[in-house]
Amino acid sequence: MNLISYFIRKLTETEVWKSVFRHGYTDTPRNRALQTLSNVWLHLHPVKVPKHAVKIRFTWCLGGLTFFIFLFLTVTGVLLMFYYVPDVNRAYADMIDLMYVVPLGRLLRTSHRWAGHAMVITVCFHMLRVFLTGSYKAPRQFNWVLGVLLLVLTFLLSFTGYLLPWDQLGYWAIMVGTNMGAATPVMGYQGPFAELLGVKINNDIRFALLGGTQIDAPSLLRAYVWHCIGIPIIAGALMILHFWRVRKDGGISGPL
C-alpha cells in the first residue's frame, strides 16, 4: 500500500502530470473542485451536487446510461462504417463478412445492435423515473419537452438502422413502418384527404422517406445517411441542450 501511494505521489508530482492536469492531486477540497472544473470532460458536472442526487435509487443512473450507451453506439457504429457499404449489392455480404471474417466483427455488430435496443429501453425508463419524481415540474418543463424530442429521435435512430443489414427482417419491418407513413392524412397517398393537395404515390411523404415508390437502393442510402449522420447530429445537439438545461434549471431536482 505504502509503495503504491509513494508511486502515485511521485507520478502526480512530475512535470508531465502537472502539465496534463493543471492542478495537484493532493486530496484537498480545492483539488476536488478543480478535478471537475479544469477537466473538459468532467466540467459538464457541477462541482458539487446535492447529496440525494448521487443516490442510485434517485436517478437509477438512467439518463447517464442512455448517454453512455449513445457514446458506445457512436464508437461501435464508426467501426462498423469501416466495413459496411450502403449498396444493395454489398450490404448483406458485408454483414456476413462481419459475422464470419472480420476479426471481432461479430462482437462489433452484435454489441452495436443490442446496445441500440438497450438505449431504447433506458430512455423509456429514464422518462418514467423523471415522471415519477415529478422532475418535469417548474422550472424544468422545457427540459422535459427536449426529452420527448430525444425519445422520438432515439426511436428513429434505431428504426433507420434496422434496414441497413438489407435482410428480410429489416426490409419488411421498414415496409410496415413506411406504409404507415403512406396513410398520413393529407401528406400520404393512401391517407384521408390526399387528393386535396394532389398527393400521389410518387410525391408523398413515404416517397420522401424511401427516395422512391418502393424500398430500393435510394432507401438504403437514405436510411444510412439519416442513421449515421443526420439523426446523430440532431440528437447530439439536443443532448447538449438537455444537459445544459439540467444545470441551468437549478441542477438536478430534489425534494423541496
Partner: peptide
C-alpha cells in the same frame, strides 16, 4: 441550501 457533496469522486 441543500446539503451537497463533491462531484469528484462521489458522482463521477
Amino acid at each position: 441550501k441543500t446539503k451537497k457533496v463533491f462531484s469528484w469522486p462521489n458522482l463521477v
